[in-house]
């Protein structure tokens, strides 16, 4: 039954949104829609939320991957947004191709869940999310240099911190402590 609903949603996507965008199905028949840039991605998400048959209301995952081999077109990174509907249980994968220094729009205004996910993408790939309330590293240390999931980052690279390296806590402390 879910398969039928998903297939219907795929048709809707293809007929309504795919005319000037790339559209394909993945190996399990879930739709992949390529947005024309970050602004278009936000626009599409709004459309999906209001659409009577899609009813997208849940951000399942937000991630990215490196496109150094240019197999997905001229662009450095691909941001992947996994959307789910908690009412119809259809999935939509929205992809945005970014140039090397292009900024992505934040989704935190739509889903607060995007906050940490975007921080992780920033941490791992160095993609800037415009409008993000607190864009800093999350898994790696504040003192770390480089973005480890980029393909040019060697996986055996070590980056030891000396104990004397100052941690910049100016953004993470709050209240009275910053005036001491």
């Amino acid at each position: 039954m879910v398969k039928e609903i998903q297939n219907k949603a795929n048709e809707i996507l293809q007929n309504t949104f795919a005319s000037e965008r790339k559209f394909s199905l993945d190996k399990v028949g879930e739709p992949i829609l390529w947005a024309n840039g970050p602004k278009d991605a936000l626009h599409l998400i709004k459309k999906f939320q209001d659409h009577i048959d899609l009813k997208i209301d849940f951000l399942s995952d937000l991630t990215a991957y490196d496109n150094t081999d240019k197999k997905d077109g001229e662009g450095r990174f691909v941001v992947v947004i996994q959307l789910l509907s908690m009412q119809t249980f259809i999935r939509i994968r929205l992809k945005v191709l970014l140039k090397a220094n292009e900024e992505m729009e934040t989704l935190t205004n739509i889903w607060p869940a995007a906050n940490w996910l975007e921080r992780e993408v920033f941490d791992m790939y160095g993609i800037i999310f415009a409008g993000h309330p607190n864009l800093k590293r999350i898994l790696m240390d504040e003192r770390f240099h480089g973005h480890p999931l980029r393909k040019e980052y060697p996986y055996k690279q070590r980056e030891p911190f000396s104990d004397n390296t100052k941690i910049n806590l100016s953004n993470s402390t709050r209240g009275s402590s910053s005036h001491e």
């Binding site: 399990v28 879930e30 992949i32 995952d61 081999d69 992947v80």
Partner: peptide, 21 residues
Amino acid sequence: GEAYTCVEGPNGELGFYIVSR
């Protein structure tokens, strides 16, 4: 190719998104 596969894990949706070239 690629696929996103998820199961209902004990804590919630556990998903693996694999992009293969």
